[in-house]
Computed example of a mutant assay.
Amino acid sequence: MSESTARPLRADAERSVRAILEAAERVLSADPGATMEQIAAAAGVARATVHRRFAHRQTLIDALASSAARQLAQAVEDGRPDTAPPLVALHRITANVLDVKSAWAFALGLPSEPGSEAAVLHQDIARRCLTVLERARTDGLIDETADLHWLRRVYYALLGESLHGSPEDSDTDTDTLAARIIDTLLHGAGPRA
């Protein structure tokens, strides 16, 4: 039974699963080959607790990828991609996504199995991104001839560079980084009128 179809967990079990997933992100970021025992120790739970929730390592990895993808999807949704003015939605989504991606870099970097919950969520996120870009084009923020699929890829690259680029940006708040990303996406590096 998958985590998404399982009956709801009790509050203490939910906290335990959250602690395990957070520990897995930290431990696997540092050592992708880490054992379930190392993850349990980092989570402050018994190894048996990890195995009770996740039958084997791949189950834990899949749950980690799904959990991070759900958080990323929620970050996009919280930016109100369908209802907020496009420029506001782009900024909110960008700042939210930077926060989630910085906290869950390992999990969000995992390849998604086709048809998995994480893969479906990532496809929906890409679709939502195109929706916001289309709304921005309708509002005249993006040239009417722009290839939105290419622009989405550029946007993703800007997000990635902001997260993994210069150490000088490590102390820059997400709102400032989001503003830079959106400014670069919409205006490039050319002179301003």
Rank of each mutant, 00 (worst) to 15 (best):
P8A: 09
P8D: 11
R10W: 11
A13F: 12
V17N: 05
I20V: 10
A30C: 02
A30T: 10
P32F: 11
M36C: 12
Q38P: 14
I39T: 14
A40Q: 12
A43T: 07
G44T: 13
G44F: 11
V45F: 12
V45I: 12
R47P: 11
V50W: 10
H51I: 07
R52H: 06
R53D: 09
R53H: 13
R53F: 07
F54M: 01
F54H: 10
F54I: 05
Q58W: 10
I61M: 12
A63N: 11
L64C: 13
A65S: 11
S66D: 15
S67E: 11
A68K: 04
R70S: 08
A73T: 13
V76R: 10
D78L: 06
D78F: 02
D78R: 14
G79I: 07
G79T: 06
P81H: 02
T83R: 13
P85Q: 07
V88C: 03
R92V: 02
T94D: 12
T94G: 04
T94H: 15
A95R: 03
N96L: 04
N96V: 02
V97S: 04
V97F: 04
V97T: 06
V100P: 04
K101P: 04
S102A: 14
A105V: 05
F106H: 08
A107F: 08
P111L: 08
E113F: 09
P114N: 13
P114I: 08
P114Q: 02
G115F: 00
A119Y: 11
H122R: 06
H122N: 09
R127Q: 03
C129T: 05
V132D: 04
A136M: 04
R137L: 01
T138E: 02
L141H: 01
H149M: 05
R152W: 03
R152V: 03
V154P: 00
V154G: 01
A157V: 07
L159N: 01
G160D: 03
E161I: 01
L163P: 05
S166Q: 02
S166L: 01
E168S: 07
T172M: 10
D173R: 04
A178C: 07
I181H: 00
I182D: 09
D183K: 04
L185Q: 13
L185F: 15
A189R: 08
G190Q: 09
P191E: 15
